[in-house]
């Protein structure tokens, strides 16, 4: 079943590995990278890789590095990658839901090969890991949950505290007000953190695994309050209702006044498709100086 190398100069961009290849019509309806050919499937003998031919002029090292340094191109590329990964899972179409999707192991954006042969070899060399991950991710989706301190609970300082030391206009009074404000802020922040942890604990009850991304900066989130939790949960499809119910309760306004929780999902389980977090023999993961 060896795949023929293509004649024209180009690269092969790989998106995801699956056991159940998406149907050709479903694949054909999903554009991958705009600059490349149609999505296609490589048969690696029990495992299938969804790939796309892309021109080397745009996806070669230099060209791609330049393009990805332009935010608009970076975004287009990321969305194209995500589309193709969803197509590999059969979840990209209008009628398919993530629950119906086949298990896929997503590959990082811009996984490029010189040709089909090297893509297939890469899959073949990591077959046991990929199989294990496909078992782990089958019938599961990822949910992203972010918790921020509520506006006004942390940063917006409350008015001057009541009490004998709160009034007055001397330097001592000023200092005492300032330290009271600081204390309030710290208390509010501590409370928000506690609530964020409680949310995490509650959601973990309905998830088979959880992981955390680094909290995003305020510049990135566009919020005035800090992000306290940037978590991802791997949820069994059978438990999805329970999870989303818990989520709905947690994200409802007013339930937890110190924080604001937002969720997105279901996602392809990107955050759990990593074998470096799995207990695997060290031999396979030798680092080289980059």
């Amino acid at each position: 079943m060896s795949a023929a190398e293509r004649a024209e100069p180009g690269l092969v961009c790989a998106f995801a590995v699956t056991r159940t290849p998406p149907g050709p019509t479903a694949l054909a309806s999903v554009p991958g990278h705009e600059e490349g050919g149609p999505l296609r499937v490589l048969d690696a003998g029990g495992l299938y890789v969804v790939v796309q031919d892309v021109p080397e002029t745009l996806f070669g090292e230099q060209a791609l590095a330049e393009r990805l340094n332009r935010p608009a191109d970076l975004e287009r590329c990321a969305r194209a990658h995500h589309r193709a990964v969803e197509a590999a899972a059969g979840t990209g179409g209008p009628r398919a839901g993530a629950a119906a999707g086949a298990a896929v192991v997503p590959l990082p954006m811009a996984t490029l090969y010189r040709g089909d042969r090297s893509a297939l070899r890469a899959v073949d060399e990591r077959r046991p890991v990929l199989e294990a991950l496909l078992d782990r991710l089958r019938d599961r989706t990822e949910w992203a949950v972010k918790v921020h301190a509520a506006e006004g609970s942390v940063d917006a300082a409350p008015g001057p505290p009541a009490g004998p030391e709160g009034s007055g206009s001397g330097g001592r009074a000023y200092l005492s007000r300032a330290s009271a404000r600081r204390r309030d802020r710290q208390e509010a922040h501590g409370k928000a953190r506690t609530e964020a942890e409680a949310i995490d604990a509650e959601l973990r009850r309905h998830a088979v695994a959880a992981t955390r991304h680094r909290p995003q900066s305020e510049r990135l989130t566009g919020r005035r309050t800090p992000q306290l939790l940037n978590a991802a949960y791997l949820v069994e499809n059978a438990d999805r209702d329970a999870f989303t119910r818990a989520l709905a309760a947690l994200t409802a306004e007013g339930g937890r006044p110190s924080v604001r929780a937002d969720a997105s999902g279901p996602w392809i389980p990107y955050s759990f498709a990593r074998w470096d977090e799995e207990p695997v023999p060290e031999t396979g993961r030798r680092e080289v100086p980059a």
């Binding site: 590995v17 990082p108 954006m109 990591r126 990107y270």
Partner: peptide
């Protein structure tokens, strides 16, 4: 998509 997923 940038740094998650299996690096094959």
């Amino acid at each position: 998509v940038l740094d998650k997923g299996v690096v094959i």
